Amino acid sequence: MFFKRVLTSALATLAVLGGAATANAADDWPSRPIRIVVPYPAGGSSDIIARLISQQLGAALKQTVIVDNRPGANGNLGASQVAQATDQHTFLLCDVGALAISPSVYKTLTFDPSKDLRGVSMLAYSPHILAVNPSVPANTLSELVALAGKQPISFAVTAIGSAPHLAGVAVEQATKAKWLYVPYKGGSQAVTDTMGGQTQVIMNGMLATLPYVKSGKLKAIAISKRERMAAVPDIPTLAEQGMTGFESGTWQGVMAPVGTPDAAVTRLSAELARVIASPEIKAKLLEQGAEVVVQNPKELDTFFNGERKRWATVVEKGNIKLD
């Protein structure tokens, strides 16, 4: 009986110490600057959000937050670097949907995003916007599809295998349109060339594209949301133009290397949720066509795996494969 009481007391002490250690781990993190890797060129949706939140996030964590653009391989170069990071202070801010597509499109990846990365927080959603150069004689999806049946239509994509590319393929599959895809290394140049007339059509994240629609440099055909957005009530959806139930877009979220401690992930997730929902940032995003959508680590992991399965079907049907 005496031994049992001693053992019970010892276990209770260990539990208390263990809880204290977990609390200390959360309190001690971060112990150095935070690096947020954006795996695309500057000026895109992920980059815009990263720079919007960096100052407030740094103040909340009492550490400098560095935004590090690492473009290449349709975002997979930067994602791979984060997956291999072991410093517990390196994170990925990316289009989660695009990352979910990569395993289906690329024959060989240096990492498996489902196994090597873990969710931290979803931040925002903005639909894709289907837009054309103002000189294109089409104002609706049906008119654009009809035009594509009469002449070659050049379709700018941020990269082959990217989320906007797959959304364009989905439109193609649903409408029987035929696009001549022109690949770029990022959304910024794709938008610039469509405005300049080098390409005629683009499907891209609304956050990075809507300002040019508002200025008249691009003409909007549709957004890829199930219902219209309050920020742009005059732009019809693809769903109401025949693609019933269709939705795509850029889901901006933060991922961490799988070995990142739970305490760090939990704290960063909470601070990201608070910062992204601040009135100032929320208003800026809404003005540019993005909605704040927060998910916790578990919810983000579930969403990611669902998107991976969803787009694998589109990739298989479209026979899209890259080395």
Rank of each mutant, 00 (worst) to 15 (best):
E240T: 14
T209M: 04
A256Q: 07
D234E: 15
A231V: 14
L238Y: 04
T244L: 13
M243C: 10
T237M: 08
P233F: 08
V201F: 02
L218F: 08
Q200K: 11
P233D: 04
N204Q: 13
Q252I: 14
Q200C: 01
G216F: 06
A231C: 13
G216I: 05
N204H: 12
F246A: 03
L207Q: 06
Q252E: 13
R228D: 05
M229Y: 07
P236L: 12
M255T: 10
M229I: 09
Y212G: 02
M206T: 03
D234V: 08
S224W: 02
V254H: 03
Q241M: 15
K214H: 08
F246V: 04
P257W: 06
Q252L: 14
L218H: 02
R228L: 03
A208V: 00
Q252R: 09
G242S: 08
P233T: 08
G245R: 10
E247T: 05
Q252M: 13
A208Q: 04
F246C: 07
K217I: 04
E240N: 13
D234M: 15
V258A: 14
S224L: 03
T244C: 11
T209E: 05
E227W: 11
R228S: 11
G205C: 07
V258Y: 15
G216H: 07
T209F: 02
G245I: 11
E240V: 08
Q241L: 14
V201H: 05
G249C: 06
S248D: 09
I235K: 01
V201D: 00
Q252A: 14
M206A: 15
V213K: 12
T199M: 07
A256V: 02
G253Q: 05
N204K: 09
M255F: 13
E227F: 12
G205K: 07
V258P: 10
